[in-house]
């Protein structure tokens, strides 16, 4: 039977509600790898499902299935019509149904991870789709990216600075990058990660465990990282800073 045939009516709420975690960040920073790492580390403790959002293909879903970190049917792809940003923020219906179907078909699930299609620094999830979100940067993008700000870097629930094993090859001072990011986030958590460093994987897993605890105790309140940050437009008079509201 296909997902479509077993799908609940559009109105019936899922039997069990999972903790829904979004994973956003620019192209190639390691969103899929972070999800694979989390599934590997936590699938003995939690029943997990994954939704990927691809732009042209279902490459990410295939990658995760090939990693064998979850039963293949618990990884599903949503096609975003070349607008990954829209699918996680302006029009979340496709993703919302995918999450609800997943929760219904594999009930009870503890966690559903939603990977955003790689976009730019402005793309963040709407809280109408997820309860908390990670924003993933990598050291290879340069040490100054964390200072560039934007809603994901500034206000995602967790900022991940990935691939720190590569730092020495790209002349990035990880400590400085973490410090810059922490400053840009008013003390919200920043995690330096490498899939090759077990300790960093343990820290990531612990963050998810704590989030899960807070979610169930009602302590965790989903927050919106917010609209696009104010930014600069050049014009004849030298330009101006504005916000999108």
């Amino acid at each position: 039977m296909t997902a479509e045939e077993t799908a609940p009516s559009p109105t019936s709420a899922p039997q069990t509600r999972s903790l829904r975690i979004g994973v956003a960040g620019p192209v190639g920073t390691g969103k899929s790898s972070t999800i694979a790492t989390l599934c590997r580390a936590l699938s003995d403790e939690y029943r997990i499902g994954v939704i990927t959002n691809d732009i042209y293909t279902d490459e990410d879903a295939r990658f995760l299935r090939a990693e064998g970190v979850l039963p293949a049917e618990r990884i599903r792809a949503v096609e975003t019509g070349a607008c990954p940003h829209t699918a996680i923020r302006d029009d979340v219906t496709m993703n919302l149904l995918a999450v609800e179907d997943m929760e219904q078909d594999f009930a009870p699930l503890d966690i559903v991870l939603v990977e955003s299609g790689g976009d730019n620094l402005t793309a963040t999830f709407s809280p109408s789709l997820i309860d908390a979100q990670l924003f993933v940067l990598d050291v290879a993008g340069g040490g100054d990216v964390a200072r560039k700000g934007g809603p994901g870097i500034g206000r995602a629930d967790l900022l991940v600075i990935n691939k720190i094993d590569l730092a020495e090859y790209v002349d990035v001072d990880v400590e400085q990058m973490v410090a810059d990011a922490t400053a840009a986030r008013d003390g919200k958590p920043v995690l330096a990660l490498s899939r090759k460093r077990q300790q960093s994987i343990d820290e990531l897993s612990d963050w998810v465990r704590q989030l899960k605890g807070k979610y169930h105790s009602g302590e965790h309140v989903p927050t919106d990282p917010g609209p696009m940050a104010p930014h600069f437009h050049a014009d004849e008079d030298g330009g101006y800073v504005h916000t999108h509201e």
């Binding site: 096609e79 975003t80 019509g81 607008c83 829209t86 699918a87 029009d91 979340v92 219906t93 496709m94």
Partner: peptide, 9 residues
């Protein structure tokens, strides 16, 4: 622009 996923088609 109604958020019902039509833009993906």
């Amino acid at each position: 622009r109604l958020p019902a996923g039509g833009y993906a088609h």
